[in-house]
């Protein structure tokens, strides 16, 4: 092939690659032309040709730089959001059979963090999804490098009633691991996140008698003000564990971690006494014959003599 035909063919090829967005391939072809022109003697307008190619190469580098620059997730329309929400099927293990969780995860993984956080927040009311929803809220904030906002949320849960003690500890550990992994831990060095979760008890374990059952007044919900009596299934000093059957959902929804019951009655075989109790944990039993029932833990803070 004659020199000028060869150059024409290479120009055509490079332009095709560029038009197809194949920038590396276009660049390689222009560089091939540069070498060919430089190594060929008696080329007419050699300098002008090389200058033109050099301009093309610069433009390609500029375009490549633009393409590699950080692109923020886009704002999406309602239709687009619907399409995103269907990306993860509800039978995906991560979604735990919940279409709402699947939708929230899909939004989170495509960078639609605000919408995802909104959906995860709604899922905090579902016992089986609460822990994962909370972790994902933290994940969404961290992905946006909003460490303070993530921390704010964790702190909220530490003092509030939304998560059980175990759950809040789990979320806190997850948050700490995540910030460390992303090298963002320096940002939280001044924040004390080892905040005490439970109020101190004024009584020693050995001072508490074996308790058979306890009676307290519900503080919220449709049964607010009603007195309920629950049998103690396990006692470890000042910590009392009770089982609440899943059919008694109204009761369990009326009790939250962090609730404080003044004037609680404690029934032991030897005496009845009263005091203040603090709800330290509320979890759904996930295995065994009592699966689906709830385990409620109350810490005795003081005894009135």
């Amino acid at each position: 092939m004659r020199f000028d035909e060869k150059i024409k063919s290479l120009v055509k090829e490079a332009e095709l690659y560029r038009s197809q967005g194949l920038l590396n391939e276009a660049l390689d072809t222009y560089k091939k032309m540069q070498v060919l022109i430089e190594s060929t003697q008696n080329v007419k307008n050699k300098e002008t040709l090389l200058k033109k190619i050099s301009n093309k190469v610069d433009a390609l580098y500029h375009q490549m730089e633009e393409e590699l620059s950080d692109i923020k997730p886009p704002e999406v329309s309602k239709d687009e959001q619907d399409a995103i929400e269907n990306l993860i099927p509800k039978d995906d293990p991560e979604a735990k059979g919940s279409p709402e969780m699947a939708a929230a995860l899909s939004l989170a993984k495509t960078g639609q963090f605000d919408q995802a956080i909104e959906k995860f927040t709604q899922l905090l009311s579902q016992d089986s999804l609460r822990f994962d929803a909370a972790k994902n809220i933290v994940w969404c904030w961290i992905q946006q490098k909003e460490v303070e906002k993530a921390l704010g949320r964790v702190k909220q849960w530490m003092v509030g009633n939304v998560l059980s003690l175990d759950e809040v500890n789990g979320v806190r550990a997850y948050f700490e691991a995540l910030v460390k992994e992303l090298g963002l831990d320096a940002q939280i060095s001044t924040v004390n996140i080892q905040k005490k979760l439970e109020p101190e008890s004024e009584v020693e374990d050995q001072d508490i008698l074996d308790i058979n059952s306890t009676r307290f007044k519900l503080l919220r919900g449709s049964r607010k003000g009603e007195e309920v009596e629950l049998e103690i299934s396990f006692q470890a000093g000042k910590y009392l564990k009770m089982l609440v059957p899943k059919r008694d959902r109204q009761l369990i929804e009326s009790v939250n971690v962090g609730d404080r019951f003044n004037g609680m009655q404690f029934y032991s075989p030897m005496a009845i006494f009263s005091g203040t109790g603090y709800v330290s944990s509320k979890v759904t039993i996930s295995a065994g014959p009592k699966k689906g029932d709830y385990s409620l833990e109350i810490k005795i803070l003081n005894i009135q003599t």
Binding site: G21, E67, I71, P73, P74, V76, D79, E80, A83, I84, L87, T110
Partner: peptide
């Protein structure tokens, strides 16, 4: 239904089409 192309940057697909 509608064809949805989410977040194309120029003519590059960065997310997905549906």
């Amino acid at each position: 239904g509608k064809m949805i192309s989410i977040d194309t940057h120029g003519d590059r697909t960065l997310f997905f089409d549906f």
